[in-house]
Design a protein around this nucleic acid. Structure first.
Lengths: 248, 248
DNA sequence: TGGACGCTTTGACCCATATCAATGCCGGAC
DNA sequence: GTCCGGCATTGATATGGGTCAAAGCGTCCA
């Protein structure tokens, strides 16, 4: 199983949590893990330090396959990862994109429930699942936090079900753009420029559409001056219009 | 938030766990909670006893609404509950059906993420969320178990995304029937007779189809001798054919 | 500098599923 | 019984989005 959604979501506001004790090059992941798990003692952070390990993947590399034994927990620190399930005939459903700060494998099950592939080149912090498990065991506040996190994940999955089952192509694309904007906003500058590092095929497989429909929908939105399509992204001109389409 | 899926799934086999200490009429829920949470001490079971409370709902009654403050955790002991999200214009996505043995509100978040309505008349065991929470706190093995459960839930949700986004009407209906059969099998007799207490509209809203398409698909399956449609249910004639359609 | 490859856009057409509209069927009220 | 109301089925038709096919358009590399 794989949890991969906004860690920042359950972090009570941003803060500078560099604790000045780094023993390897992986400050970022420690900071983010901190925010997921709630306050940790310096000693606990040091222990996490020792468990973490930086790893890089080129674009298109597979971090892990669906059904594989889950040996690791990852924290994405740079780049984007796609998480998906496939049908035997090749049809694919992307169930989520992991952005910097997101975790993979936090469900701590013994097998991964989805496959994970680098969309762009990706840098992660890796933890051994076994070590992470024993680290977490005996820290009930941390377990509680993890469970809350799981509930949040499930809620997002259910939103996505509503989108896949009951929304039109326009609504799907609008919701996708707004959602991405919000998530980028959390990790960097909140901007009307939304990068789209993933391909149209990825977007289509995320929204339950075809590549052509995604493309046509974007040009339609562009024609009605709701967005501007730029290289590798989109500029939102009327978030109001998008909100209206996404129809919360 | 709401977790509502096969509790039996994570129970290591059925067993008769009546512990002979019941102080109210709710043996069933204790048995099932036991199976979710792993071995508990008799004293712990007694404590749960005191927290539980039987409640009945007639068909169509709402157990709780989406976004409402989550005051309770439920364990369904009789009947079927539908869990859904709605769009402002009335479009509805059912994200799951809760059968006897399933839990509602196990995510323990402060608000329910979906609405829950009785499909049939329903009997539940109710626990106060606050009491359940303090009961669970300080029982790390139980927290671990709960977290595993959450991961399983998420995995099911992701399967449903694949179904909603990438499967045809035939495949959706076939997968739905097989899935229901498997779940009934866990709580009673594994049979080729699959009860369908929910309406066609419910099935449609679960599969992202219309009522007419569900009806047509069932008659099509009946014409090709894959199933027989009977009052309030379906008899499966060729699970092979259904498996083939569901295309694991 | 060009051409080849991968991705995106655009166009024309089609089909699976939605929509609209009867009709059928059953169970409860009286 | 029979009337009524709520589902389910079936048929006719429409359409959103899929499919197939052909250009665009960068970018990388020779």
């Amino acid at each position: 199983m794989t949890f991969a959604e906004p860690a920042a979501e359950i972090c009570a506001g941003e803060r500078d949590c560099r604790h000045g004790r780094s023993t390897n090059g992986c400050d970022d992941c420690k900071v983010r893990l901190f925010s997921v798990c709630g306050a940790l003692e310096p000693a606990e952070l040091d222990e996490l330090d020792r468990l973490s390990q930086v790893k890089n993947f080129p674009a298109k590399a597979m971090l892990f396959d669906q059904g594989a034994l889950a040996g690791s927990v990852f924290n994405v620190t740079e780049g984007i990862v796609r998480l998906y399930k496939s049908l035997p005939d090749g049809r694919r459903q992307i169930v989520g994109f992991a952005l910097p700060g997101d975790f993979l494998g936090l469900a701590l099950m013994d097998r991964y429930g989805v496959a994970a592939e680098a969309v762009t080149s990706v840098r992660v912090c890796r933890f051994s699942r076994a070590q992470f498990l024993s680290y977490v065991d005996g820290k009930p506040h941390l377990l509680r936090r993890l469970h809350e996190f799981a509930g949040h994940e499930l809620s997002l999955a259910q939103d996505q079900m509503l989108l896949l089952g009951r929304r039109t192509a326009d609504e799907k694309v609008a919701a996708f753009l707004l959602n991405l904007q919000a998530r980028y906003g959390r990790i960097g500058s909140k901007s009307v420029n939304v990068p789209l590092p993933m391909s149209r095929q990825d977007i289509a497989d995320y929204l339950g559409l075809t590549i052509e429909t995604v493309s046509r929908t974007l040009t339609k939105l562009a024609k009605e001056k709701t967005v501007v399509v730029v290289p590798d992204g989109v500029r939102l001109l009327s978030t109001d219009r998008l909100d209206q389409l996404a129809a919360a």
